[in-house]
């Protein structure tokens, strides 16, 4: 099972004000909030952590069949921080492995239940107006859509 999540950073900027009072506290653990407040680019860190949580949740949700909105219970840790950022998301002691692609216009994270699978995942990212109409027929393992972007993983 695969997960993926794309954040259009230009849309995120106008769609969400994470500096709103109590906002971070509803979503992020104390450790994650520390990563954000100490980051050189706090906006990037917010959406990196968010995309990690979303991509891991998409696997966990399909696996368990349970649906909930508990972002704070999806605990992220980040291992490196350059163009390819690896991380782990712990959901009720189940670990999901993530790899994120940080660009100036978007952040894209892929997730897998096994670390070794990450390098096998094929990624296709489309920007408007170039979204393929028939992408469903290609049977992607996970679909993510935000703003200008459509991200598919196989």
């Amino acid at each position: 099972m695969l997960g993926n999540d794309i954040v259009d950073l230009n849309l995120a900027k106008i769609q969400s004000n994470w500096r709103r009072k109590n906002y971070l506290d509803k979503i992020f653990t104390v450790e994650e909030q520390l990563l954000i407040t100490s980051a050189k680019k706090p906006d990037e860190m917010v959406w990196l952590l968010w995309s990690m949580k979303e991509s891991a949740y998409k696997i966990h949700n399909r696996k368990t069949g349970l649906r909930d909105f508990a972002p704070k219970s999806l605990k992220c840790s980040i291992h490196s921080n350059n163009k390819q950022t690896y991380g782990e998301v712990n959901i009720q002691d189940v670990i999901y492995f993530t790899k994120s692609n940080l660009q100036t216009a978007f952040i894209h994270t892929i997730a897998a239940p096994v670390y070794g699978k990450l390098e096998e995942i094929k990624v296709a990212i489309y920007e408007l107006p170039d979204h393929p109409d028939d992408y469903k027929s290609t049977k992607p393992g996970c679909v993510s859509h935000h703003g200008q972007y459509l991200a598919l993983v196989y």
């Binding site: 769609q15 969400s16 004000n17 009072k21 906002y23 509803k26 979503i27 935000h146």
Partner: peptide, 10 residues
Amino acid sequence: NSANLVDIVL
């Protein structure tokens, strides 16, 4: 958008 669910809660 799921990030806006937090706004609804707030």
